[in-house]
Nucleic acid binder design. Structure first.
Lengths: 148, 148
DNA sequence: ATCATTGCAAACCGTTTGCAGCCTT
DNA sequence: AAGGCTGCAAACGGTTTGCAATGAT
């Protein structure tokens, strides 16, 4: 459950250090229901009195992304915490961790969807075009349960 | 077939003017097999002796995108010509023209895929999460026929 | 004590804005 | 002739880099 703590332990096990700025960013991401841009993270931390330098936020996000602890929303570039309840989810050896997002256009809430792989339909699209599909990126936009 | 000419006629019919810069950009896009960034377009035009100001390229691309004559690749932000052979493809009243891309990671070639709508699998994903899906963005990356 | 990590300053780069002048209609 | 469109200059804003200081191990 505690996303921030889990993420910090994973980082530690991989030789990274547990620092205050990293903890502050992770705890913010733990609270956030929506995806956030680096600047939004900066502002939210500022207004909470938790001062972290903008540059550090960029570097921390890069580190978290490298370690599959956050992912980026393609259509906005914002970042969102990964679901760490699935053991394999943040493994480093899988280049393409296959999950997708349901993004509410009204409240911005993000729900993570575990992908069961290419559907027959999708596989067929590639085959028709003589294309060998390696990875795919998929995002849904719509209304979440509360907003619809 | 002649993408640039078709696009110019569509623009004209919508009250836009046919100008040299627009023609130059469209003819470049017609030749391009891969998606291009604004700066790549600028450089390619320069080396062809066809000088168009960077700012104009931005404004022309914005116009073309507004009119559904080009589309943007989500994972790179680059633009690519739309397939205009389909009559409805660049209509203005359809907010979400549903097509997707097969992008070759080796040569960058882009193939456009006409989307038959949400697959049962996709529709089901949304339903499970209580999500009303309105639009979706899908990109495939892999190897095209030549590169595989 | 060591070295990863942070904070600050400044550079960087793609993009946007304002405005005068040009060119299509 | 009118006004949409372009080109130039300059501003803008998010991101990156270099380096000294800090702090986790």
């Amino acid at each position: 459950m505690p996303y921030a703590e889990d993420a910090l332990q994973i980082l530690k096990s991989r030789g990274y250090r547990i620092t205050q700025p990293r903890r502050k960013v992770l705890e913010l991401l733990e609270r956030a229901e929506t995806a956030l841009s680096p600047y939004e993270i900066k502002d939210l931390l500022d207004s909470a009195g938790e001062r972290v330098d903008t540059v550090s936020i960029y570097r921390i996000l890069e580190c978290l992304e490298d370690n599959h602890l956050i992912h980026r929303v393609l259509t906005s570039g914002k970042v969102h915490k990964c679901d760490l309840s699935n053991e394999d989810h943040c493994r480093l050896d899988q280049e393409d961790h296959c999950h997708h997002n349901l993004i509410c256009r009204s409240c911005g809430a993000i729900e993570e969807v575990h992908c069961p792989g290419l559907s027959p339909l999708e596989a067929n699209l590639g085959k028709q075009a003589g294309f060998t599909i390696e990875t795919h990126h998929l995002e849904f936009s719509g209304l979440c349960r509360k907003c619809s």
